[in-house]
């Protein structure tokens, strides 16, 4: 039964033009971020060096190649050694030999930034970090928010007050203050604390939204009818209400992913962001402080707008599909 409904729903969704456009755009962006190392990196995808082999710097970290540029690595390779290089031999971290703020050219597709680093490589690797952060935190906060808000709205009474209070306590911590507090306490900034803090704060917001929607739906006649047939409040909430909430929650989820990425931007701008040498979109945009112009700022802005736009189109399509 559920299976058939789901298949029907997916079929309708995939037939929607907006969903198609959004899905294609998102897959292209995801493709570039997943295969970032195959496209632009200063470490080879595969090396055989003095009898031992290394695959993908992300999986096995060859210590001996640390802090080396592609041309230096190439110079150390002997006649028996072999390497499989990515399409472009520039990485996101190390400055290239070219001067900073260079215009786009064949060797640097989007030019170089204020520190002489390749903007294209940074964009690719930054996309991965930002997308992963947005998706993880967005999914986590949607899960927390929907579960808490649904239970609070459906069960009411003590549960409602309890969860409402919990949500309020977490929700009243602005993300920036919570992150600042954790950052000030930590000896060295960590990514995990950033994820947990932003997810908790976002989840609290979504829980409030869910609760309001559940309360509103429970006032409808069909909910009263379901209660009359003896359905338990939780069953009503998660079996009958969920489809009604899906459009609003889909939009909230999309906005959450987008806003997490934007929050990260603000945090990076205030020097509280992802503690990483690898670029994120936020960190790239933060270069505005060192007088970066449009050539450096536009790529991350466009990538950000594309991602958020694609997610939005998908959410919109979900809403349309449900409305039939």
């Amino acid at each position: 039964m559920i299976d058939r409904e789901l298949r029907e729903f997916l079929g309708r969704l995939l037939g929607n033009r907006r969903a198609q456009i959004g899905a294609i755009a998102l897959s292209v962006i995801a493709f570039f971020s997943i295969f970032a190392e195959w496209i632009a990196s200063d470490v080879p995808i595969y090396v055989r060096y003095q009898g031992s082999s290394y695959v993908l710097p992300a999986i096995t970290r060859p210590d001996r190649f640390r802090d080396m540029r592609a041309d230096q690595i190439k110079a150390t390779l002997g006649p028996d050694d072999a390497a499989l290089w990515p399409l472009l031999r520039v990485g996101p971290e190390a400055p290239t030999t070219d001067p900073p703020l260079r215009a786009a050219s064949l060797s640097h597709l989007l030019g170089t930034d204020a520190f002489g680093r390749d903007v294209f490589a940074r964009l690719l690797h930054g996309t991965r970090v930002s997308l992963a952060l947005g998706a993880t935190v967005g999914a986590l906060s949607l899960l927390i928010g929907f579960a808490l808000g649904g239970v609070a709205g459906a069960l009411g009474g003590v549960w409602d007050s309890l969860i409402e209070r919990l949500v309020e306590i977490v929700g009243v911590f602005p993300a920036v203050v919570a992150v600042a507090l954790v950052r000030a306490l930590e000896r060295r900034p960590s990514l995990l604390s950033l994820i947990v803090v932003i997810a908790a704060v976002n989840g609290a917001n979504i829980a409030r939204l869910t609760r309001v929607l559940v309360l509103r739906s429970l006032a409808e006649e069909w909910a009263v009818a379901a209660q009359a047939t003896g359905a338990s409040p939780l069953r009503i909430a998660f079996r009958h209400l969920a489809p009604h909430l899906a459009p609003a929650l889909a939009i909230a989820g999309v906005l959450a992913v987008g806003s997490v990425i934007l929050t990260e931007t603000s945090l990076s701008f205030l020097d509280l962001g992802v503690p990483s040498k690898i670029a994120t979109w936020g960190e790239m945009l933060g270069e505005i402080r060192w007088g970066a112009g449009a050539p450096i700022l536009l790529p991350p802005i466009i990538a950000l707008a594309l991602t958020v736009g694609a997610l939005y189109l998908i959410a919109d399509a979900i809403r349309k599909t449900f409305e039939v």
């Binding site: 987008g258 934007l262 931007t265 603000s266 701008f269 936020g282 945009l285 933060g286 505005i288 700022l297 802005i301 950000l304 707008a305 958020v308 736009g309």
Partner: peptide, 8 residues
Amino acid sequence: LFATPTAC
């Protein structure tokens, strides 16, 4: 407007 970071 939403996707353009406030900073920029």
